[in-house]
Amino acid sequence: MPLVEISNLTVAFSGTRVLHGIDLSIEKGEAVGLVGESGCGKSVTWLAALGLLPGKATISGDVCIGDQQLVGASRTTLEGVRGGRIAMIFQDPSSSLNPVIRAGRQIAEAVELHRGLTGKAARDETIRLMELVGIPDAPRRFDNFPHEFSGGQNQRLMIAMALAGNPDLLVADEPTTALDATIQAQILDLLISIRAETGMAIVFISHDLGAVSQICERVNVMYAGRIVEQCSTEALFQSPRHPYTRGLFDAIAQIDGGRERLVPIPGTVPQPGRLPGGCAFAPRCTHASELCHNTIPQLVGDRDRRATACFHPIGMSGANLRVVSSVQGATVA
């Protein structure tokens, strides 16, 4: 049984749907990447799963951790899962830490809540977590305020807070975006080492394919509220099949390359309330046919344990795929 199973998850804000049936499973101890442009639904997927979206959001589908259903669960149930079984860290630690409460006290609060420790035991565990994530001279810096730490150290503090409940799954929502390249590498190394030490699973949300390649075994590529490609990280980098994924790779500058112009993806991401009738990527795709403009391709797996939501995947014959249209209810061979 997967650690977390998400099935047909949909989210709408004020009647406008932004997620269109997300299916995603996370196994115990694995690292899974979720990549795509800003606004594609990466973060919303996990905010919805943990019940962290505002009241105007309408959520349907299933999110199960073991036998426990999270969609529609009570506040008490969700609070028992958040931080305890599933923890989440965000891309801007400065907005997540309270600037007027000492950093160690904020981590200790999480330790007290999820571990039941108090007093000296809670302080000692907090210092251990601070040392685990690489905060130097942790006993002395326990009483420092967040502004007395660097940006990278604040992110380490957020990771320490997330680890306070010994979670089975850590959701890292673009944790390196606001950091310089050197600190980014240190945070990635930290996540890799913590995963190896604790055995927890990681969902790594990012638009940085390079970072995803360092930390994840599997990748899910999202576009306009749908997953359009699923496969191993190695397979994705060797032969991306969805035209959108191919476009992401073509837009990356090659360090050892010449001075050739980058190849951008033409057009812009459609607004959630103005999606085209067929494939959302069709207006920007050089491979699109009439079928693509009129029918939504479904995410279909193959013998290579890869799944692609495309009628004309790169490097494959469209005639070899069976794709079910959610619009017309037809099967296209």
Rank of each mutant, 00 (worst) to 15 (best):
V4D: 03
T16C: 13
R17N: 05
E30S: 14
E37S: 02
K42I: 13
A49P: 01
G51W: 00
K56G: 12
G61Y: 01
D62Q: 14
G66Y: 08
Q68P: 09
Q68E: 11
G72R: 05
G84W: 04
R85S: 11
I86W: 03
I86T: 01
A87H: 08
A87D: 04
Q106A: 02
Q106C: 02
A108F: 03
E109W: 14
V111F: 00
L113H: 03
A122N: 07
I135E: 10
R141I: 11
H147N: 13
A162P: 04
D173E: 14
A181S: 10
T182P: 06
L191M: 08
I202M: 10
I202E: 03
F204T: 04
G210H: 06
V212S: 01
V221S: 02
A224Q: 04
G225W: 11
G225A: 05
E229T: 04
Q238M: 14
P240Q: 09
P243N: 12
Y244D: 07
R246C: 08
L248M: 05
F249N: 06
A251V: 12
A253K: 09
A253D: 15
I255F: 15
R261S: 10
L275F: 02
L275P: 09
A280H: 13
C285F: 06
E290V: 09
E290F: 15
C292H: 01
N294G: 10
I296K: 01
V300P: 01
R305M: 07
R305V: 03
R306E: 15
C310R: 00
H312C: 05
I314K: 15
G315H: 14
S317I: 02
V324W: 00
G329N: 13
T331W: 14
